[in-house]
């Protein structure tokens, strides 16, 4: 399984902090995003936001980054700390 986590405004829009996906049918971060978009129109709209960032195992990655079972994939808005 792949653990998926969401933060900040994204978590609130989805009303979801965390879920799991089978690793069998997703190979990349973009495919994970596509799978999540397919859940319903609310999720599709939320994930159509091009500024969303993604991380795999705590490192910021691009959409073509490969994912495998046991990975933690995170999606979040641009960061605003400091």
């Amino acid at each position: 399984m792949i653990k998926i986590v969401f933060f900040a405004a994204l978590r609130e829009q989805l009303d979801c902090a965390e879920l799991s996906l089978s690793a069998d049918d997703v190979k990349t971060v973009n495919e994970v995003k596509q799978r999540l978009s397919d859940r319903n129109s609310q999720w599709r709209q939320t994930f159509s936001n091009a500024s969303l960032l993604s991380a795999v195992n705590h490192d910021m990655v691009a959409g073509d980054h490969l994912v495998k079972s046991g990975d933690e994939v995170a999606f979040f808005p641009p960061v605003t700390g400091g």
Partner: peptide, 8 residues
């Protein structure tokens, strides 16, 4: 930190 560290 402003653009890379995951704070919101």
């Amino acid at each position: 930190l402003k653009v890379k560290a995951p704070f919101w």
